[in-house]
Design a protein around this nucleic acid. Structure first.
Ligand SMILES: [Mn+2]
Ligand SMILES: [Mn+2]
Ligand SMILES: [Zn+2]
Ligand SMILES: [Zn+2]
Lengths: 145, 145
DNA sequence: AAAATTGTTGCAACTAAGTTGATTTTGGAG
DNA sequence: CTCCAAAATCAACTTAGTTGCAACAATTTT
């Protein structure tokens, strides 16, 4: 799932009618290079290692990208949102989160047709998306125990 | 999914070696009577309509119940945890959350064997639990639109 | 070129949800 | 009834994110 090199972030911003700014580009590049979903604070720190930024700018950019469907916000355990790129090469997929170290791993996308049929909600609801999170103990934490 | 009348909360507390206190009992009764998962603030407000309580007490009780497996904490959209009873009559199940009104509905438990086979995480991880959340537009919000 | 418009960033102050440590109160065993 | 570990309270703190407004930058208009 490391096909970010295929994405032209400058072009993506242009196609969204967004100006190419240093912070926007940095957010996309950082998420594109990440192997798993990142917290806003982590993104902020990476940008700050290069240039001066205010956290509000990063939060506003992430919010905007999420609304446009360019980035996905994951609700995992705890009160901290995690963000990952939602480019065409990265379809929605389940995640694994370790009880102990809280690390998040992306799992392969699953065909949801089978799951859909199992999930008959109250009639009249319109389901748009299924979010799957597997909880457990990651291989690193297993070795330590 | 309204079998809370079968649960004897006083006995449950005793079997857990917990003293029977007004707030503990109230938390269990409120969660037992709820038709969907509640936020800590909602639980607090219901208790406060009857007696004086500090929010810390409620948070500490919820935390303790979650650690003991008596209550489940749901990580839904946003930064607010939702809590539901995890008594023997209420097995883990998926949830539906409305984009618009954010209301949470409990869905029927699904047999996860089919889903398990689809979710092949990195080798070496030990999966303990699968959390499924369906997002969409609830029937009430659909009517309004 | 100057001015106005628009979009972007920065700053400070704020909020919501939950946590911590110290102190006081209470359930229930003896 | 007495006593004390367990439970509740209080105030202060933390974390993650939000809000309103000012400053700045990039275009567009005159
Ligand atoms: Mn992912
Ligand atoms: Mn439920
Ligand atoms: Zn781990
Ligand atoms: Zn709704």
């Amino acid at each position: 799932m490391d096909m970010s090199d295929r994405c032209d972030f400058r072009q993506w911003l242009a196609s969204q009618g967004l100006k190419l700014t240093a912070v926007r580009l940095a957010v996309l590049e950082i998420l594109g290079a990440a192997s798993c979903a990142l917290r806003a604070k982590e993104i902020l720190e990476v940008i700050r290692s290069r240039r001066r930024v205010n956290k509000v700018t990063v939060y506003r950019i992430l919010e905007d990208f999420c609304n446009r469907g360019m980035v996905r916000r994951l609700s995992l355990e705890g009160r901290v949102s995690h963000y990952e790129l939602a480019c065409e090469h990265r379809p929605p997929h389940p995640h694994f989160q370790c009880h102990t170290c809280r690390e998040v791993q992306c799992l392969e996308p699953v065909p949801l047709t089978r799951v859909w049929t199992e999930l008959q909600g109250p009639v009249g609801n319109r389901a748009d998306h299924i979010d799957i999170r597997v909880e457990g103990l990651c291989h690193k934490c297993r070795e330590e125990a």
